[in-house]
Simulated scan of single mutants.
Amino acid sequence: MVETTSLTLERPIKAAVNYLNFYYGGKVHALKDINMPVGDKQVTALIGPSGCGKTTLLRCFNRMHDLYSGNRYRGEISLEPDGINLLSNKVDPIEVRMRISMVFQRPNPFPKSIYENVAYGLRVRGESRRAVLDEKIEKALRGAALWDEVKDRLQDLAFNLSGGQQQRLCIARALATEPEIVLFDEPTSALDPIATSSIEELIAQLKETVTILIVTHSMQQAARVSDYTAFMYLGELIEFDKTETIFSNPSHQKTADYVNGRFG
């Protein structure tokens, strides 16, 4: 385990992971005393070999693990500036997921129209006013750089979009509830290079308004899109620093071995 809270970020802290442990089924100790700050309106990348815990950590932020019985958290994730522990039993996981949205590895549009895909979270929140929905849906689609491509076909099925468009639609759906943090779980792994480049450019734009955490197997992608990088191994956070430092002058030999392709 590496202490990281002494690192001074360039921006205020949006979330702080404090001595976080996570257990699958109450038995498998998947995360071990994770400490990590997340800078406001910055991109933080989680890297490491398969099975190291990066997706497990990502899914703690929006309580996805609550969907399966027997999973258990210990420690906290504090959402700032409110100081709310996202893992507290007193905090509603549904509300957490409105404030912290997630974009998954493969595009997963609902079997609905483009319009209703983006409207989904707003309707869950009880919004039914057409004018408000229209405004927020357009804003979200513009935020996902998709509005100009779909504005004349909002009632078409989302499945009629290309793979890259579907992923941007999922990003628009994530943005519609105006979240404070957006989680990306390998968002380009199922996309071609052109669509991948489009999503990476979008991430660079989105960080002007929202905080981003991204899990990626591509070290090149982490280097391109992130401000800070966390290297994880066997459930532990080995090193957390500015991305340029992680890739050019890491403090730990295991980090150096991983980023130089000696294992993984």
Rank of each mutant, 00 (worst) to 15 (best):
Pro179Ala: 13
Ile181Ser: 08
Val182Trp: 09
Leu183Tyr: 02
Cys170Asp: 02
Ala176Arg: 11
Pro193Cys: 12
Gln167His: 09
Thr196Met: 08
Ala174Ser: 13
Gln167Val: 05
Pro179His: 13
Leu169Val: 03
Leu169Cys: 06
Lys207Ala: 07
Arg168Tyr: 04
Arg168Gly: 04
Leu183Lys: 05
Glu186Gly: 03
Leu191Gly: 04
Leu191Thr: 03
Ala195Gln: 01
Ala172Phe: 03
Leu206Val: 10
Arg168Phe: 06
Thr188Arg: 02
Thr177Cys: 15
Ile194Lys: 14
Arg173Trp: 02
Arg168Lys: 11
Asp185Cys: 00
Ile171Trp: 02
Pro187Gln: 08
Gln167Pro: 02
Arg168Asn: 04
Thr177Asn: 15
Leu169Asn: 06
Leu169Arg: 08
Ala204Tyr: 00
Leu191Asp: 04
Leu191Glu: 04
Gln167Thr: 04
Thr188Ile: 12
Val182Tyr: 10
Ile199Tyr: 10
Leu169Gln: 05
Leu183Thr: 01
Thr177Pro: 00
Leu191Pro: 01
Leu202Gly: 10
Glu178Met: 13
Glu180Pro: 00
Ala176Glu: 09
Ile171Gln: 06
Leu191Trp: 05
Ile199Pro: 02
Thr177Ser: 15
Pro187Phe: 10
Ala176Phe: 07
Ser197Met: 14
Asp185Trp: 00
Ala190Tyr: 01
Leu183Glu: 01
Ser197Ala: 15
Leu175Trp: 09
Leu206Ser: 11
Ala174Gly: 09
Ala190Gln: 08
Glu178Asp: 15
Thr196Arg: 12
Thr188Cys: 14
Ser198Asn: 14
Leu191Val: 05
Ile181Leu: 10
Glu180Asp: 14
Ala190Trp: 00
Glu201Ile: 08
Ile171Asn: 05
Glu200Leu: 13
Glu201Leu: 14
Ala176Cys: 08
Leu206Phe: 11
Gln167Ser: 06
Gln167Arg: 07
Arg173Tyr: 01
Ile199Asn: 06
Ala176Val: 08
Thr177Ile: 15
Thr177Glu: 11
Gln205Phe: 00
Leu183Val: 04
Ala190Arg: 06
Leu175Gly: 09
Ile181Lys: 11
Ala190Pro: 01
Glu201Val: 04
Ile199Ala: 06
Glu201His: 14
Glu186Asn: 08
Val182Leu: 10
Leu169Thr: 05
Glu180Gln: 14
Lys207Gln: 13
Thr196Ile: 06
Asp192Ile: 09
Pro193Glu: 11
Thr196Val: 07
Ser189Lys: 05
Cys170Gly: 03
Thr188Pro: 01
Asp185Phe: 00
Arg173Ser: 04
Asp185Pro: 00
Leu175Thr: 09
Ile199Asp: 04
Glu200Arg: 11
Asp192Leu: 09
Gln205Gly: 08
